[in-house]
């Protein structure tokens, strides 16, 4: 339909202005800022690529790559757990067990709670003195396994990832379940008539048909793994203890840009450089995600 230009402006400008001012402009400005050194007040000093040199080759690089490796580790463990358990549980739920509806509600519940609060909750449960987890281990006779989960360098990061899985798994279950329920029932029916076992049906029919969903979820998991911040903040703090064993790029960025005692590097420009680095990692996959989702719609 045709329409007067004044109407077009009236309807699209408000959204366009907000989005340009508070999303697009700040992202571009981050890029600019990464070439400067700036304490947040006073003059900005143009330093060219110094921030990036510092980040990749200087003394700051150790901190950055330590965190980066934790993000990657986070992605690998979280993706493996959430997709495999998610598929298994979704497959079981697809069999229309009695009580499946109630179960869906239960598994989704942790998703409704703010990440940072989930972090605080488990911070208490993993506490070596009063914690639920150690007491439970004692109760079932595995006292030797009890430990200060978040204080022990060998278990701290893994504990955070497991708590993160506890929070998110329900979402993956329900999305995969929706994908399984989308499979034409005749296909599965026919396989049963041919005498296929459930294992065969799960691996040869259902799994291949939900792979496109897995691909989308993997991208989301990857982006999510580079966005980790709240959980670490709540469980091991800004310093990402013990000995930065739980440090991720999000906490490095926070300390660099917004201080946090005990950080050797505090500079808004250097902080912006860290965000540019995260952005460069996440952007290609984000675009792929939009492309995949958009293609499904074929709106244009």
């Amino acid at each position: 339909m045709r329409v007067k230009a004044s109407y077009v402006l009236l309807f699209i400008l408000p959204a366009l202005v907000l989005y340009s001012l508070f999303v697009v402009y700040p992202l571009l400005d981050s890029l600019t800022l990464s070439f400067y050194s700036w304490k947040g007040v006073g003059p900005k000093i143009f330093v060219g690529l110094k921030n990036f040199r510092e980040m990749f080759f200087g003394s700051f690089s150790k901190e950055v790559f330590n965190a980066f490796s934790h993000n990657i580790y986070f992605f690998i463990v979280a993706a493996t757990l959430e997709l495999s358990l998610g598929f298994l549980i979704a497959f079981l739920l697809a069999s229309k067990l009695k009580g499946a509806k109630l179960f869906r509600t239960v598994v989704y519940m942790p998703n409704m709670i703010p990440l940072v609060i989930v972090g605080f909750m488990w911070n208490l449960f993993l506490n070596p003195q009063i914690g639920l987890v150690n007491n439970f281990l004692k109760f079932i006779g595995l006292k030797s396994l009890a430990r200060p989960w978040l204080g022990d360098p060998s278990t701290a990061l893994l504990s955070i990832i497991l708590v993160n899985t506890w929070r998110h798994l329900g979402f993956y279950v329900l999305v995969i379940l929706a994908a399984i329920l989308n499979i034409p029932p005749d296909l599965i029916e026919a396989a049963y008539i041919d005498g296929a076992s459930n294992r065969k049906i799960a691996t040869k029919i259902v799994l291949p048909l939900v792979l496109p969903t897995f691909r989308t979820l993997l991208i989301l998991l990857f982006i999510g793994s580079f966005n980790v911040f709240d959980m670490v903040y709540a469980m091991t703090g800004v310093q990402a203890g013990p000995f930065r064993k739980t440090d991720v790029l999000g906490t490095v960025f926070y300390r660099t840009a917004f201080g946090g005692l005990g950080s050797a590097f505090t500079d808004m420009g250097l902080g912006a450089a860290v965000t540019v680095f995260i952005f460069a990692i996440v952007m290609p996959l984000s675009i792929l995600y939009v492309f995949l989702v958009e293609r499904r719609e074929r709106a244009w």
């Binding site: 402009y25 700040p26 992202l27 981050s30 800022l33 840009a257 808004m268 902080g271 912006a272 965000t275």
Partner: peptide
């Protein structure tokens, strides 16, 4: 675009 990354500006 993950908007968090633009938090400084």
């Amino acid at each position: 675009l993950p908007a968090r990354l633009a938090v400084i500006p």
